[in-house]
């Protein structure tokens, strides 16, 4: 087995210790620690699985089994902005599909596609629990350590279009929105 080439920063390591202490068994920390790994490394690569498995005494194959079961872990690199459009019941009734189709055309990608500049990954997702403020879009920003996930609710085709422009601007100007 190769020596994993990545490691948590000191801050992440501190956070890791806090998380592990919450459970009577180390494996129980796997979900939160995978979130931590994704925040640190951007995605859950095979090396990240090996690293996390080593930290928690869980064989990498088990880590992979878990990481691949849950939709929030990216097993492939994604764009800086992971734009996730809900098209389930209430969003379906109020225009979520139209928003998704518009963004596909605007970004020139299909479902789960990433733009050539690596800025955006677009994905159709299931209910985000935003039904009262439908339609909803979840945007993950890999560079936003404070709010890596934000909800944008009560969207229209026009506001979703403007949202993409604002994100692009944020990327070119640097800093958070």
């Amino acid at each position: 087995m190769s020596v994993p080439s990545l490691a948590f920063s000191a801050t992440a390591m501190q956070r890791f210790e806090t998380i592990v202490a919450r459970y009577p068994h180390r494996q129980a920390a796997l979900l939160p620690v995978l979130h931590l790994a994704q925040a640190e490394f951007g995605w859950i690569s095979p090396e990240a699985m090996e690293y996390v498995g080593g930290l928690l005494d869980v064989p990498p194959v088990k880590v992979q089994h878990v990481a691949s079961f849950y939709t929030m872990y990216n097993l492939k690199p994604v764009g800086r902005f992971h734009v996730q459009v809900c098209t389930n019941t209430s969003c379906w009734l109020t225009g979520g599909v139209e928003i998704l189709e518009h963004l596909k055309a605007k970004l020139g990608v299909g479902n789960k596609g990433t733009t050539a500049d690596g800025l955006f990954t677009l994905e159709e997702v299931e209910c985000l629990a935003s039904c009262g403020t439908a339609p909803a879009i979840q945007v993950n920003d890999l560079k936003d350590s404070e709010w890596p996930i934000r909800y944008h609710e009560g969207q229209t085709v026009a506001s979703a279009d403007a949202l993409i422009d604002a994100l692009r601007k944020r990327a070119t100007e640097g800093g958070a929105a």
Binding site: R22, P32, L34
Partner: peptide
């Protein structure tokens, strides 16, 4: 009594 948050990871 201890209370901890455990985050899910996307699975209905």
């Amino acid at each position: 009594c201890e209370i901890h948050v455990h985050p899910g990871a996307g699975a209905y």
